[in-house]
Amino acid sequence: MYNEEVINEFQNLQNVGFIENHNAYGKIGNAACGDIMEMTMYINPETEIIEQVAFRTFGCAAAQATSSRATTLVKGKTVQEALELTNKAVVDSLGGLPAQKIHCSVLAEEAIKACIENYLDRKAGKVSNENEKPKMV
């Protein structure tokens, strides 16, 4: 059901983990639905370039592969460029996903958006810069 590219990504996940000194944090999904994606980034405040990015996922093989691929696609990009990343671009970059798995890739796009919104909120002084403790959603 998964193509070779997806299986390869799943076997060699990139950027797994949690960035301790992050300044952007996003978490999307719901454990009851079986999919949670958490993303942390360090974004250079001067250049607004995403210098570090890491993810942790509770989810199926497609969820893992798309979060991994999404992180590699935004790493080194500016905040503005990252906001333009669509789930379709992630799926295309993996050579496609089975139809019933497309919703997993939406989660990757949403996690990136949530992460960057969090960064922008911090910049605007709307949220504290303390490291979030991952919370059950």
Partner: peptide
């Protein structure tokens, strides 16, 4: 606890072990 079944299934699959998962993501339902 803490991990999703389909992810486990495919790891086992890559090691040549065939099993079934009770996770939603295997069935296409939520």
């Amino acid at each position: 606890i803490g991990i999703e079944g389909e992810g486990i299934l495919f790891h086992l699959d890559l090691h040549g072990i065939a099993v079934s998962s009770g996770s939603a993501c295997s069935s296409g339902s939520l």
